Simulated assay, not measured.
Amino acid sequence: MFEDSYNRREEYQVPVEVDSEYDVKIEDQGKTGDGIARIDGYVIFVPGTEVGQEVKVKINATRRKFGFGEKVE
């Protein structure tokens, strides 16, 4: 039987949870200008941040190798 690979849900482990908040330091800048932080080596893209900032981020989404967060005021 043909399996629709586009609808298959992948299982993966990441060191963060969606909707959780973490204190991070922005270590690098991505190609589109987003700040990059790392939690246990896991990359988090954080828009509106600059290298060197220490911020609290809320995780919005995760993928196998990286996640997306937003700065919490």
Rank of each mutant, 00 (worst) to 15 (best):
K65V: 15
T62A: 13
I59W: 07
K65W: 14
E17C: 04
E73K: 08
T49H: 04
Q29W: 01
R9S: 05
I59P: 00
F68L: 14
V72R: 04
K71E: 13
D19W: 12
V18P: 00
E70Y: 01
D40W: 08
V14P: 00
K58C: 02
Y42K: 10
M1W: 08
Y12A: 01
G69E: 05
F45Y: 15
V16K: 02
E27H: 04
G30E: 10
F2Q: 09
T49L: 06
R64G: 03
G35S: 10
K31L: 13
Y22Q: 04
D28K: 12
D34V: 07
G35I: 09
R38T: 09
T49M: 05
A61D: 10
G30K: 06
E21F: 03
R9F: 08
E54L: 02
P47G: 07
R9C: 03
Q13V: 10
E3S: 09
D28H: 09
I44D: 00
D23F: 04
D19N: 13
D4N: 13
V46M: 03
V51D: 06
I36L: 09
I26C: 03
Y12I: 02
G33S: 03
D34R: 10
G69T: 03
F2A: 08
G48F: 11
R63Q: 14
D40M: 13
G48C: 11
G41F: 11
F45Q: 08
Q13N: 09
Q29I: 14
V57A: 03
D34T: 10
E11Q: 07
I36W: 00
P47Q: 13
G41C: 13
V18G: 02
G35V: 05
V72I: 14
D40A: 15
P15G: 01
I44A: 00
Q13T: 09
N60R: 12
I59D: 04
K31C: 05
V43Y: 06
